[in-house]
């Protein structure tokens, strides 16, 4: 592995569902310790891209390298070892509704036998504190929490094992602007504190500029623009401009039929 190799490198990634080609040769580099935000319209394949990197969907072609190693060529055990270095915050939080919050937060640690069950409640309280929740919230069930609190718990679960890589799937979707900003702030804090490499996908331009060092736009199954997240609104790219400013007229044609 060369010293300059990015933490995550995606090359020529392709994935189709039936006739629909969702990813059509995606190339992407995420340097270690940086945050990349991937933007793109609904159905553009952002979630599929992130799920391919996480190993939840098997791509049809291409390579996904983590620390210079092609994960698609690895066996199940090696893939599991890589998955243990990743934290993920799902769009709808995906908390286990049959388990209390403390067990949700420490689920990964318990599964990897990194803590004993007797210590898990205390550990969960510490991690919940890092996302601005009281330890007593650990005794509640996910259904008893508001949307914002669920996102915080999901973030706590994602960072519990101090992962090297963090993935966020639309972290502010369904939240009011203030709660969205709070979640973005927590994400920034967590990523900085852990020194993790982060990839987030979002529609929310304010969120994209807050949490991303760099940004990339996915359109037509490919990355059509990459640059600093701060320059998203002045990218000079017609596709990005139309998307970030929410214009109806422009080169992007929205598919109205599946």
């Amino acid at each position: 592995m060369s010293a300059a190799a990015p933490k995550i490198r995606v090359r020529s990634l392709a994935k189709s569902f039936g006739e629909k080609r969702v990813l059509d040769g995606v190339d992407l580099d995420v340097p270690a310790g940086t945050s990349l935000v991937v933007i793109g319209g609904s159905g553009s394949g952002k979630s599929v891209l992130i799920k391919c990197i996480l190993g939840l969907i098997e791509p049809d072609a291409g390579t996904i390298e983590i620390d210079g190693e092609n994960v698609l060529a690895l066996g199940q055990e090696a893939r599991r070892a890589i998955a243990a270095r990743i934290g993920m915050l799902f769009q709808n939080s995906a908390l286990f509704d049959s388990l209390p919050v403390w067990e949700n937060v420490t689920f990964g640690l318990l599964a990897r036998r990194r803590i004993r069950r007797a210590e898990a409640r205390v550990k969960a309280g510490e991690i919940l504190g890092q996302v601005g929740l009281a330890a007593s919230a650990g005794e509640l069930f996910p259904a008893e929490l508001s949307g914002g609190m669920q996102k915080r718990v999901a973030l706590a679960r994602a960072i519990a094992a101090t992962p090297e890589m963090l993935f966020f799937d639309e972290p502010t979707t369904g939240l009011d602007p203030i709660m969205g900003a709070v979640i973005d702030g927590l994400i920034q804090d967590c990523v900085k504190r852990l020194g993790s490499t982060a990839v987030a996908i979002t529609h929310d331009m304010a969120s994209a500029r807050r949490i991303g060092d760099n940004a990339a736009m996915l359109y037509g199954g490919r990355i059509v623009w990459e640059g600093p997240a701060a320059s998203l609104l002045e990218s000079g790219n017609a596709l990005v401009d139309q998307f970030t400013h929410g214009r109806r007229e422009g080169p992007i044609r929205m598919e109205l039929r599946a």
């Binding site: 996480l54 998955a83 990743i86 799902f90 769009q91 995906a94 286990f96 509704d97």
Partner: peptide
């Protein structure tokens, strides 16, 4: 996505 979440939690 809870089943996907299980996979990401080893």
């Amino acid at each position: 996505d809870q089943i996907d979440a299980l996979s990401t939690l080893s």
